[in-house]
Amino acid sequence: MNHTVRVWDLPTRIFHWSLAASIVALVVSAKLGGNAMVWHFRFGYAVLALLLFRLVWGLVGGRWSRFVAFLYSPARLLRYLRGQEHPEDAVGHNPLGALSVFGLLGAVALQVGTGLFSDDEIAFAGPLTRFVSNDWVSQATGLHKDIGQYLVLGLVALHLLAIVLYVLVKRQKSMVRAMVVGDKVLPTPVAPSRDDAASRLLALLVLALCGGVVWWLVGLGG
């Protein structure tokens, strides 16, 4: 008997697709340059707010959105790679997927962080450049324009490739669907993620506070 379980709460799903859309917008605006850089900065601030939200939501969010749910030990990862899967590996992020998630979030955080201290020496500068030395700005700009962007693009490509392989090879078509509707059909019952009106209101409050932090941070450079 199969069981339908709420795995991804609505705030996590909105975060996921908002981050994906924002990364695309960041890449496009950076390639266009010129006046599009105004939007590049705006999307960068939006991504920073989203990352702060995910950091908090990883502590207080739904059961399977919390970091503790997919913070695996090296031994658990090795067993998964050997094909010795734990029953809960198929619920949220499996051990390999968890590495991908943490790696991508870390790379995006690094890219946004260096962007705050970058300066194109033409018309646009990050809001925090005046707080650090020119040498620091130069290093941050170099990381942001070169290593950082390619690292993010590479990890995004690997993330998408992994999803395609899981869908086509392992026939786990519910993976993408679950991030849209929130539910997964599982062979055994597990504790669902909380996804009621109260938790969604909490998520909205957390997002507003994170947006306020970013607004304050950007204002420091004004």
Rank of each mutant, 00 (worst) to 15 (best):
P74Q: 06
V101Y: 02
A90N: 14
R63L: 06
L81F: 03
R76I: 09
S65N: 05
L77A: 13
G92Y: 11
R63P: 00
R63H: 15
V56R: 03
V68N: 12
V91I: 13
G92W: 06
R54L: 08
L55H: 00
N94F: 02
G92L: 11
R54P: 00
L96P: 00
G103F: 01
L55N: 04
G103P: 01
R63W: 02
L105T: 09
E88D: 15
R76W: 04
L55Q: 01
R66Q: 12
L55W: 07
P74W: 03
L96K: 01
A98M: 05
V56A: 11
L78A: 14
V101Q: 07
L81P: 06
F67W: 02
A107E: 01
R79D: 15
L59R: 07
Y72R: 08
G97D: 02
G103K: 01
R66L: 09
A98D: 04
V68S: 13
G103T: 08
S73Q: 12
L99N: 09
N94A: 10
V101A: 13
V68E: 13
G92I: 03
F67G: 04
L105S: 02
G106M: 03
A109Y: 03
E88L: 15
D89T: 13
W57L: 02
A98K: 05
G61Q: 05
V101S: 03
S73I: 12
G92K: 11
F70Q: 07
A107R: 08
R76M: 06
A69W: 06
D89L: 10
V108I: 15
L104D: 04
E85G: 04
G97S: 10
R66A: 07
L96D: 01
G62T: 10
L77P: 09
S73C: 09
V60K: 03
F67C: 02
L104Y: 00
W57K: 05
L99G: 05
F102L: 11
W64P: 01
G58R: 05
Y72N: 05
R66T: 05
H86G: 08
H93V: 03
V91S: 10
H93G: 06
V56Q: 01
G92V: 12
L96N: 03
A107Y: 06
P95V: 07
R79I: 02
G106L: 12
L78M: 12
L59G: 04
D89H: 12
L77V: 14
A98G: 09
Y80Q: 11
L96Y: 08
L96H: 04
L99A: 11
G83I: 08
G61L: 06
G92A: 12
F70M: 00
